[in-house]
């Protein structure tokens, strides 16, 4: 809970700085845009956090975003599939990718880092080969499907409406929060992340849980990829989704997930995802060179996790002193 307040503090601080020094931060257009991007990256970050909870990692998120996203216009436009077939097919394909990762990790006992690093290369390569490395787009059609990402819901404000992507984000976040805190499988997933061996000795089906976590992560990435392409309309297979896994992992870590596993906060992850997007916008609005983007994000992440560690130690020491006679 306190961790969430910390990351909320960082988010508000960046917002305040950006609105004071940047002219267009507090405009409806910008805020609407930020909400959209935070929601999209939030979905990826939620997926990443499920895997991080088990003590694993998924580096293939960006490539899955690309492959799933690119497949949508490719199937709709080039192969003239029905949207009713494309959406389930792409989601099922994404889930299969996760299953593939999960089985390699739990059955062959390969390391998650290795498996998903290979995935990163594999799916990007497939996407580029499949499309002949050509840009894929909707060519002005399929607006009814694209509405899944492009629809806006007025909330009584003149310049600001809520983007449609907020709906899947809220649904997924709520489901994940309930899953982790209230269900047997969620509790077991956390236990597996804390000590996989002890969980196994307690009769917990750890292999199925871990596999399930990778399925969920890739499924979230596939859904995110679809919503991304609906939002932007067209994309290049060579760069679409590049580094998105790092935004997702960074958001999860900023939001309080321990890479050692066993710890996660859904609210924290959402705040982490939002913070990164606000930062990216702020860099542009403040007139900093956009080439600095990665450097700024890296620095903020480093400061964030260092501060968290220092505060934790300080609190421990204070508790020790307070209890002294």
């Amino acid at each position: 809970m306190k961790k969430n307040l910390g990351i909320l503090g960082i988010l508000l601080a960046v917002c305040v700085v950006a609105s004071i020094f940047g002219d267009n931060f507090l405009t409806g257009y910008n805020l609407q845009n930020l909400t959209q991007r935070s929601a999209l990256f939030g979905i990826l970050a939620l997926g990443a956090s499920v895997v991080i909870v088990t003590g694993g990692i998924d580096l293939s998120i960006g490539s899955v975003v690309c492959l799933a996203g690119i497949s949508v216009p490719w199937l709709l436009v080039e192969h003239e599939w029905s949207p009713w077939a494309v959406v389930p097919a792409v989601l099922a394909g994404s889930a299969l990718i996760g299953l593939f990762h999960g089985l390699l990790i739990t059955r062959l006992r390969l390391q998650p880092f290795l498996v998903t690093l290979c995935g990163l290369l594999l799916y990007r390569g497939i996407a580029r080969w499949m499309t002949g490395d050509q840009s894929q787009g909707f060519q002005g059609e399929f607006d009814s499907v694209r509405a899944l990402a492009l629809a806006r819901f007025p909330v009584g404000l003149e310049a600001y409406s809520v983007p449609a992507t907020v709906i899947p984000l809220v649904l997924l976040a709520a489901a994940l929060a309930v899953f982790l805190r209230r269900t047997v499988w969620g509790r077991w997933l956390l236990a597996t992340g804390r000590n996989e061996s002890a969980a196994r000795y307690s009769g917990i089906p750890t292999d199925r849980l871990v596999t399930g976590a990778y399925v969920a992560c890739s499924l979230f990435a596939g859904l995110g990829g679809m919503l991304f392409i609906f939002d932007i309309g067209s994309a290049q297979p060579s760069d679409f989704g590049n580094f998105y896994e790092l935004y997702a992992i960074a958001a999860a870590v900023l939001g309080g997930c321990s890479l050692r596993g066993g710890e996660a906060s859904v609210v924290g992850v959402l705040l982490g995802a939002a913070t990164l997007q606000v930062l990216r916008t702020a860099i542009i609005l403040l007139g900093l060179s956009s080439q600095l983007e990665f450097a700024v994000i890296g620095a903020v992440l480093l400061v964030g996790v260092s501060a968290d560690e220092l505060v934790r130690r300080l609190r421990e020491r204070r508790a020790e002193r307070a209890a002294a006679p």
Partner: peptide, 27 residues
């Protein structure tokens, strides 16, 4: 192989019990 060292006693004790007394997966 036994304890979840960073979890409270309660989580450790109920680990094998929770699924036998859950309501459709709800603890």
């Amino acid at each position: 192989n036994g304890i979840l060292a960073d979890e409270p006693v309660s989580t450790n004790v109920s680990l094998a019990w929770i699924d036998r007394h859950s309501h459709r997966g709800r603890i």
